[in-house]
Design a protein around this nucleic acid. Structure first.
Lengths: 142, 142
DNA sequence: AGCTTCCTCAACCACATGGTTGCGCAAGGA
DNA sequence: TCCTTGCGCAACCATGTGGTTGAGGAAGCT
């Protein structure tokens, strides 16, 4: 417990069986039994996987008599892409800027190859808020 | 071993410390020691985390004397978003079509609320290839 | 009421994971 | 040459995870 939704979502999709379940639920809703028919494991195991997906907010379950139909929740997937794309864009932008610096430096001096991305053309520094600083000691601890 | 790159990538980002490392490497490359200063754990532990990220293709490490600078690899992140977005789009498209059917059925008959997404307007069925069918038994086993 | 179907919960087990410590190696500086 | 820095490897340990089986509950059928 005490784990944020994003961690749960990544943990959930880290398992191939659960990714396959997500892929199937993208096509159509399904019950536990329907899903379990496809895998070489017991229905209890599939139920556990669905519980993980549900606690990650990736699927929801309603009631239909004794059935428990499973429904994919796309906005949880959206959260994940938002996180990933944030840093991918940040990194790619930085690399593009770095390439530009290196190219413009083609006939320049030799004092290069030393962390030229810190003082890049447009300041970026450490503006983006990282989600989980899982440690108390920030900065040099010694 | 014998685990595909996508699973490795999701496993890697499932850990908050490793997500934080990715966030930092998006800003600038860093050495193991620099990263380790920020966390309440030993450098060996951070090195292990980096190994996980490296085997997932998310970071690469070069040599600079005895330093091992770590570099974020955005295309691995791109793979992940590609996977996620595929099913998010699929599901959202299906839900939009379902909503349309329900809306158009507002004055229609009462025989509804029963899996209306299977015979939707545009046939989609099970076209998208799921990545890991981790089971041998496909189709009704009985 | 009693049976069947669909599913969850609880206990258990093997193995993976995240952390530790200790050791050792490669490369630069004294 | 020796020492320090920076880092990886191996062994170890506690906990988490993915599977099993067994029991049992909720809802429809006869």
């Amino acid at each position: 417990m005490a784990v944020d939704q994003l961690s749960r979502a990544f943990v959930a999709l880290a398992d191939p069986t659960r990714r396959d379940i997500v892929a199937r639920l993208a096509v159509r809703d399904a019950t536990v039994g329907e899903l379990a028919e496809s895998y070489a494991m017991s229905m209890q195991a599939v139920s556990k996987h669905l519980k993980v997906l549900e606690e990650a907010g990736l699927v929801s379950r309603s009631r239909d008599a004794q059935r428990r139909p499973c429904h994919l929740e796309p906005q949880a997937l959206d959260q994940m892409t938002t996180w990933i794309e944030q840093y991918r864009h940040q990194a790619e932008g930085r690399f593009r800027r770095l390439d530009a610096v290196l190219a413009a430096m083609g006939d320049g001096p030799d004092a290069a190859t030393e962390t030229p991305e810190a003082p890049a053309t447009t300041s970026e520094q450490h503006t983006t808020p990282r989600d989980n600083p899982p440690e108390p000691s920030r900065g040099a601890p010694s």
